[in-house]
Deep mutational scan, measured.
Amino acid sequence: SKGEELFTGVVPILVELDGDVNGHKFSVSGEGEGDATYGKLTLKFICTTGKLPVPWPTLVTTLSYGVQCFSRYPDHMKQHDFFKSAMPEGYVQERTIFFKDDGNYKTRAEVKFEGDTLVNRIELKGIDFKEDGNILGHKLEYNYNSHNVYIMADKQKNGIKVNFKIRHNIEDGSVQLADHYQQNTPIGDGPVLLPDNHYLSTQSALSKDPNEKRDHMVLLEFVTAAGITHGMDELYK
């Protein structure tokens, strides 16, 4: 796709999030870079409003799984890469995230190029959380598991539907599940690639910047598309 050509090198990323969870309002600002050749993201996020009212790991899918245009699609799968094909005009990404036995996040993001920078601007609203639950009670460990993110075409809306389940580790050794339902639709009216069913395999590492006084998260992530085999004719070339 034409959009794919915008991702040949390292691309700067800007992320802006405004959130409200159970009436606790907050903002997060992030910057870093993405390299789609390797499916690599390096980002640093800062809570610009003081202390973040929710655990950082609960925002990873909104912040970095928010820029799935940096996923590495192998050559034989490039015609299934909706995310890059929607660029530079970008796409709207909407999600509902259900935390098992707790509340939910609803998010709406616009992901697009502004100049040479890929920008992810998000509004997040969280409701029905227990004040002493795993999320508002800050009981999650500061780490992140690997996940597969399942993608299918949504021809009606000229976009994709995505769903997956995140496993958050809790300090007591148990797990907090979070079910994600995602819809992506193009902002522009140019042609986009509608994929066959496949998935993104994601690995994320969270860390801290020892010199950063503000509440923050440093993230390194690798994302690769998989799940579609080479056609038989490919094998015999």
Score class of each variant (00 low, 15 high):
A178V: 10
D233G: 11
G23C: 01
E171G: 12
D132N: 03
F82I: 03
C69R: 00
K130R: 12
G34D: 00
K106A: 10
T48I: 04
H147N: 12
V162M: 08
E4D: 09
K100N: 06
E221D: 03
D179A: 06
F129L: 06
F129I: 07
M217T: 03
S27R: 13
N163Y: 12
Y236N: 15
K161N: 13
D215N: 02
D102E: 14
F7V: 03
L14Q: 13
D189N: 07
S64P: 00
D101Y: 05
G34C: 01
H180L: 03
V175E: 11
L59P: 00
Y144F: 11
Y236C: 14
Y105N: 01
D154G: 08
V92F: 15
R72H: 09
E4G: 11
L6V: 06
G126C: 04
L52P: 02
I187L: 14
G159R: 10
N169K: 11
Y181H: 12
S204F: 01
T61P: 14
V10L: 05
L177I: 15
I13V: 06
E171K: 10
L193Q: 10
I187N: 12
E114A: 06
E110V: 14
Y142C: 07
G173D: 10
K84M: 02
G188C: 15
D179G: 07
A36G: 10
P191H: 10
Y38H: 14
E131G: 07
N184T: 06
V149G: 03
E141G: 09
L136R: 08
T229S: 13
H216D: 00
R108S: 04
D35E: 09
N134T: 04
S85A: 11
S174N: 08
D128Y: 12
G32R: 00
I187A: 14
Q93P: 01
I160V: 15
G66S: 00
E221A: 01
I135V: 08
C69S: 04
E131A: 11
A86V: 10
S27N: 08
N197K: 09
K78Q: 11
M232T: 13
K2E: 08
F82S: 01
F222L: 09
I228N: 08
Y181N: 07
D20G: 01
I228T: 11
D215E: 07
K130T: 07
K100E: 12
F70L: 08
N211K: 11
S85P: 03
T61A: 14
